[in-house]
Simulated scan of single mutants.
Amino acid sequence: MMNKITGHYSQSYDDELNEAVDRLLTMGALVEQQLRDAIKAFIKGDRDLALEVIQTDRTVNTQEIGIEEHCLEIIARRQPAARDLRLIVGVLKSINDVERIGDQAEHIAKQLLDEDCQRPTEAQLEDIEMMGDKVLQMLQQSLSAFKEMDAALALAVLKQDKLVDHDYGRILRHNLTYMLEDTRQITRGLHLIWVARALERIGDHAQNICEFSIFIAKGQNVSHLSEEEVEAVVDKGRK
């Protein structure tokens, strides 16, 4: 249950704002499952599941359009200000990132369906699975931070991105080395790099959602601030 928005001049306005957040979270849950399925399909070599991931993308796109229309209607009818306006802007920006996470999940699934895709080794799949688990956790927690408007949780998720970047760099270096040593590894290596790159991008989009959560909660855009500066914004006003 999200931290419900209350206290406006009409119950219907409260309901409209809550619906915007609820619909974002519903879309986020669908994309989270889409990503989970994409990683599982690639790890297990499950082509049928990969096709399901791709088919889900149309539903995600439809949800994005519906939420955007709902938010624009709120702006036109209610003329929100202050925190309400930040909330609507945060939802509008976040649905774009959630939709792009769905696109990256689709990209992962398509790597498996490529006829030239060679099955990775067990060690290579373990690397992808480990990175995927971290990214899934980031996505889950970023949506939780938005749900609760929890700036402290959002900050904690932002700090996790360094681990994802480290995994991506390691997978990239290892596969480039294999490809240079044995040209037969080029196709396999490229698919693994593309999957790792998709996961790294998903981590970035989860970061963006967290930054919007902090923007809503604290009233300050932190997208271009250093980690220390973001910490100062989050800590401001704490007792």
Rank of each mutant, 00 (worst) to 15 (best):
L192G: 11
I95D: 00
A154T: 13
L172T: 03
E115R: 05
A156M: 14
L225V: 09
A82R: 06
A109C: 12
G132E: 08
D182F: 03
M179F: 06
L25A: 13
Q185I: 02
S223G: 13
A20V: 04
T183A: 15
T59K: 11
R58C: 10
D103F: 08
L72S: 12
L139M: 10
G189T: 02
R173N: 06
E228A: 13
T177I: 00
A145H: 01
I186S: 10
E69I: 02
R47P: 00
Q137D: 09
D48A: 12
G90K: 12
D167N: 10
E211K: 13
R100K: 07
R100I: 08
G28F: 09
I5K: 05
K110S: 15
N208Q: 06
N3I: 07
I209W: 03
D57G: 12
L113S: 09
S94M: 05
E32I: 01
G132V: 07
V230C: 15
D48R: 03
M179Q: 04
Y168M: 12
T56D: 14
R188G: 07
V157P: 03
I101L: 08
V89K: 03
T62F: 08
T6M: 09
S12T: 01
E73M: 11
E32Q: 12
E211Y: 03
D161F: 05
Y9P: 01
N18M: 09
F215Y: 15
R119T: 09
D22A: 10
Y168F: 15
V234D: 12
A156E: 15
E68S: 13
M130T: 03
L24R: 07
D57R: 07
N61A: 14
K110P: 03
E69Q: 06
D48N: 05
T26A: 15
G90F: 15
C71I: 14
D127T: 02
K147C: 14
D127A: 10
T121N: 05
A151Y: 10
H191E: 04
C210P: 07
H205F: 10
E148Q: 13
S213T: 15
A81D: 11
L85W: 02
Y178A: 09
K4H: 01
E69K: 03
V234F: 10
E181S: 01
E227D: 15
A232I: 11
V233G: 13
